[in-house]
Design a protein around this nucleic acid. Structure first.
Length: 769
DNA sequence: GTAAGAAAAATTTTT
DNA sequence: TTTTTCTTAC
């Protein structure tokens, strides 16, 4: 069959698309057209007669699913595309779980606990068990529970696993097993699933109900998985089971971009795909269509330092391009200033649009300084991540009301709003209530329905307040199937008193809270409208909740078309591309994150993360690091990230080390303060001109041996092997000296402070005997 | 039981 | 710096 769009693919891509006889793995290097292969493959399946409703395509983010769906729609028509089963693991399987919920002891309207809910539940369990929350830290407990669930270890399996129990004992957290057990029990009692449950319970469903598994095996004639390197065991098994009969499965991924192991992702899933699917075909996509040769080569030289990987040769046939420019600055404020300056120039001189530019960082907290700098130069920007719309307090409060109305057993929602706005139900009462509920093995709400029966020890006044609260929720609950989601939400906000609490004053904070609540109502209204066109009479509140709980703020983004600089974490940038990328904060203790330097495995993941960052860039890439950074209320000194040294220097444009005039070490702090204040208060026009744009290397210090400007010297004033003292870096050993563009330069190992390349005319060195 | 103010703690990545 | 927890006075 001749299908014209196949001609738009290269040979390897086309083979991957056309192979539909059995299982296949597509190893897709960065920028090699991975999404293209997936979309074309789905279009191909449709063109060759497959029904859209029998194709299951699993992605990592809602956004990826939506974009792919749009692209397929443009190829085969919206009418066909809309019936595809396409979405994230979590959204697809929450949908399936809802329709089968009763089989595994949940109701159709089960709540989805987000991580804040999980956190709060973990905290209260630790408190109830009277454990030390410094030993059983909520974050740690949460990640252990999550780890167990991702590996399909149920609480009972956990109790039965001597190995895990022993490990917990030796880590001095022997009671983790109890916390997990209670946690799972409380979720069940609240008719709630956390994110991990959506995958775990799907597995439980398939295991305990073979007929259901069969139904879906039959339904899905072809299964496709994007970003396969980021799947965990629970996801692996779901996919494996669904594809068991026909092995019509295609997974796409890049082991070099596996960056989610902290969330249970297991890189072995992709590395050992052949073991799971014996007759699997493997296709490799190695031509990068995104980036210049320099960027591709630099990224290759970096990832080459990892031992765990599927070797591949990613190459680019685009132009050579400019070297990656390294920017070094004194402070985080200066970093923001320099980056903003560069962006400003790229925009006005080089005709880049703001939307072509991204600033990527390791942690969300780094966005603030960048934001400030961009604002000062009136550069429009857009931040992804951080506090998303649905995580704001006022929104969570409203949603909690909605959740409780739809599912009164939802304990976390109840705790959140039982005394918001304040109605005289304090901490003691809430604790009594929950304790009492546990005693009788019922939900907290159940106790509220009959306070006398459960012997809740409260005085008459409190009992009255509780009854009032209960009847208010009851009244709303009666409306669930009568009023539309919008009408009900509106009356909830009004009657509950949330609105009067929000509208008390005219402070900017209060105004913004009001706006957010309005915004939420608008979103619910919109939801009702779109559902209407789908033929349903009215969209109900539970329908909205099931949609909303899996949304992130990238999904609520409405102004994608605006010309703005993008700010996001490297994690969030996966799958995206920009003409110009700034990777900021490339420092030790930040990138790699200090939490990830314990094992080689973790370190390799951080390196992959850096690889992801670099390969987002199409034309220009900048990497910056600061000598000092404001962190947790303190200024910390930092060294350049070890990863910068992992890149072959021939692809880099390195800065001249900027060393202040000879000073005592004590003066350094003053100097820092000076720099900080200068950049904080008034942004005068650029001071460090050489930080502006990658130009043909002129006045640059090159670390590379291939540098032909470099002439080794015999009789240097600081011979190799001798020891010198530097005002800032302290004592170091001279490794090599040379003449670079007429200036005498020395590479000196300062131990902890790292190896520095210093020009002798700038660096006042004291030679030690 | 509430609210304000002080002290202490915690800082990664996210469906 | 921001967020959470503890203290104290009503």
């Amino acid at each position: 069959m001749e299908i014209s769009f196949l001609n738009e693919l290269n040979n390897n891509q086309r083979q991957a698309v056309e192979y539909t006889d059995g299982a296949s793995l597509v190893i897709a290097g960065a920028g090699s057209g991975k999404t293209r292969v997936l979309t074309y493959k789905i279009a191909y399946l449709l063109k060759t007669g497959m029904q859209p409703s029998s194709i299951l395509a699993l992605t990592f983010t809602n956004k990826a699913a939506r974009e792919m769906k749009e692209r397929i729609a443009s190829m085969v028509g919206e009418k066909t595309a809309r019936y595809l089963w396409m979405g994230t693991f979590h959204s697809i399987f929450s949908r399936i779980l809802r329709s089968e919920a009763e089989l595994i002891g949940y109701s159709k309207n089960f709540t989805i606990y987000d991580s804040a809910d999980s956190k709060s539940l973990v905290k209260s369990i630790v408190k109830e068990l009277k454990l030390d929350d410094k030993v059983y830290k909520h974050g740690f407990v949460q990640s252990r529970i999550s780890y167990a669930k991702n590996n399909l270890i149920t609480p009972d399996a956990y109790l039965a696993n001597t190995e895990i129990l022993k490990a917990d004992v030796s880590s001095r957290i022997p009671l983790l097993k109890d916390i997990y057990k209670i946690y799972a029990h409380r979720c069940k009692q609240a008719d709630a699933m956390d994110f991990d449950d959506l995958l775990l319970q799907t597995n439980v469903l398939f295991r305990n109900h073979p007929e259901i598994l069969q139904k879906y095996q039959h339904r899905f004639g072809f299964v496709l998985v994007d970003e396969y390197q980021d799947t965990n065991f629970a996801q692996y098994l779901i996919v494996k089971k669904l594809a068991e009969q026909h092995e019509k499965i295609c997974v796409v991924g890049d082991d070099a971009q596996s960056i989610y192991s902290f969330r249970g992702a297991n890189i072995d899933n992709i590395l050992t795909f052949k073991n799971a699917y014996k007759n699997a075909q493997i296709f490799k996509l190695e031509q990068n269509y995104r980036s210049t040769q320099t960027i591709v080569n630099a990224a290759n030289s970096l990832i080459d330092k990892n031992s765990q990987q599927i070797r591949k040769t990613v190459f680019s046939e685009k132009e050579t391009g400019k070297p990656i420019k390294i920017l070094n600055v004194f402070t985080d404020y200066e970093e923001g200033f320099i980056v903003a300056n560069n962006i400003s120039d790229l925009h006005s001189v080089n005709d880049y649009q703001y939307q072509d530019i991204a600033i990527l960082y390791r942690t969300n907290s780094q966005s603030r300084v960048m934001e400030e700098a961009l604002r000062k130069q009136s550069i429009p920007y857009r931040i992804y991540g951080g506090l998303s719309f649905y995580q704001r307090k006022e929104i969570k409060d409203v949603i909690a009301y909605c959740r409780l109305v739809c599912n009164p057993n939802d304990e976390e929602a109840l705790k959140r709003i039982i005394n918001y706005p304040t109605r005289g139900i304090g901490e003691t009462t809430i604790n009594k209530l929950i304790e009492c509920a546990q005693l009788h093995a019922v939900s907290a709400w159940e106790v509220l329905t009959d306070i006398l029966k459960y012997n809740l020890a409260v005085n008459a006044g409190t009992a009255n307040k509780l009854a009032q609260f209960r009847s208010m929720i009851d009244v709303f609950a009666e409306q669930i199937n009568i009023q539309s989601a919008y009408d009900l939400a509106k009356s909830i906000i009004k009657t509950s008193g949330v609105i009067s609490d929000t509208y008390t004053d005219r402070s900017p904070e209060s105004m913004s809270r009001q706006e957010n609540v309005e915004e939420l109502l608008k979103a619910i209204h919109e939801f009702c409208e779109t559902e209407k066109t789908d033929g349903e009479p009215t969209a109900l509140l539970p329908d909205f909740l099931s949609e909303v709980s899996l949304l992130t703020d990238q999904d609520t983004d409405k102004e994608t078309n605006k010309d703005k600089v993008t700010l996001m974490t490297v994690h969030a940038a996966k799958g995206l591309e920009f003409k110009v990328v700034f990777i900021v904060g490339m420092e030790e203790e930040l990138f790699p994150s200090p939490f990830c330097t314990q094992s080689e495995r973790e370190l390799e993941e951080e390196r992959r993360l850096f690889y992801v960052a670099i390969t987002r860039a199409e034309e220009l890439c900048f990497i910056s690091y600061a000598k000092s950074r404001f962190k947790n209320g303190k200024t910390n000194f930092s060294n350049p990230s070890r990863f910068i040294k992992d890149i072959d220097p021939q692809y880099l444009e390195l800065p001249v080390e900027i060393i202040p005039k000879q000073k005592n070490i004590g003066d350094w702090d003053e100097d820092m303060e000076f720099e900080r204040n200068r950049f904080k208060s008034s942004f005068s026009k650029p001071i460090l001109k050489e930080n502006i744009l990658p130009q043909t290397p002129k006045r640059l210090v090159k670390l590379s041996n291939s540098d032909n400007n470099k002439v080794p010297i015999e009789n240097s004033s600081v011979p190799s092997g001798s020891f010198v003292k530097h005002a800032v870096f302290g004592i170091g050993k001279v490794l090599e000296t040379s003449i670079v563009n007429g200036n005498e330069k020395a590479d000196i190992d300062f131990g902890e402070k790292g190896v520095k390349s210093l020009l002798l005319k700038f660096a006042k060195l004291e030679i030690l005997k």
